[in-house]
Simulated scan of single mutants.
Amino acid sequence: MKKITVDGGNQFFVYSDGTHYELRWEDNNYHPHVGKITQKDYEEYKADKRSGDDLLYKAAYGAWPPTEEQNRQGELEFLLSDLQMVHDISLPNDPNLFEEFPELKPEYEKWLSEQ
Rank of each mutant, 00 (worst) to 15 (best):
G18N: 08
K2P: 00
D88L: 14
T38L: 09
Y21E: 02
D82P: 10
E103F: 00
K49G: 09
E103T: 06
W64A: 01
Y30F: 11
P102D: 09
Y30D: 11
L104G: 01
Q11D: 14
V34T: 14
I37K: 02
D53P: 00
G18R: 04
V34D: 08
V14L: 09
A47G: 04
G8M: 10
F101D: 06
D88G: 04
D41F: 07
L76C: 02
T5Y: 09
S81L: 06
W25C: 03
L91A: 11
G8N: 14
K58E: 10
K2M: 10
G35A: 11
G9A: 11
D17Q: 05
F13S: 08
T5R: 13
E114S: 15
K105C: 02
H87N: 15
S16C: 08
F78Q: 15
H31P: 00
P95W: 04
D54V: 06
L112I: 14
P32V: 01
K110V: 08
V6D: 10
Q115Y: 12
S51F: 06
P92A: 05
E100C: 03
Y61V: 04
T5G: 00
Q84S: 13
V6L: 11
Y21H: 15
E44Q: 15
E114W: 09
K3W: 02
V14N: 03
D54N: 12
G9F: 09
A59T: 07
T38N: 10
H87K: 15
K105Q: 13
V14P: 07
K58Y: 09
N93Y: 05
Y45E: 05
N28F: 12
I4E: 11
D53C: 07
P106S: 02
A47F: 05
W64M: 05
N93W: 01
Y15C: 09
A63M: 04
L112M: 14
K46D: 12
P102H: 08
L56A: 07
Y42F: 15
L80V: 11
Y61M: 01
L56M: 13
E77P: 01
T19W: 11
E99W: 00
W64R: 03
Y45G: 03
D53M: 10
Y30L: 13
N71T: 11
K58I: 10
K49L: 13
K58H: 05
K36S: 09
E75C: 09
V34H: 07
T67Q: 11
K110S: 14
P66Y: 02
P106M: 01
E75Q: 15
Y61Q: 03
W25I: 01
V14F: 05
A60W: 00
H87M: 13
K2W: 07
N29H: 11
P92W: 05
E26I: 00
S51N: 13
K40I: 12
D27Q: 03
L76Q: 00
G52D: 09
K110L: 13
K40Y: 05
A63S: 07
E114L: 14
D17K: 05
E107N: 13
V6C: 00
R50D: 01
T38Y: 07
E109V: 08
G18A: 10
H33R: 09
F12K: 02
L83T: 03
D27P: 06
L80A: 04
K40E: 15
D54S: 11
E75I: 14
P32Y: 04
L79S: 11
N10P: 02
S113K: 14
D27A: 03
D48L: 12
L91F: 13
F78A: 13
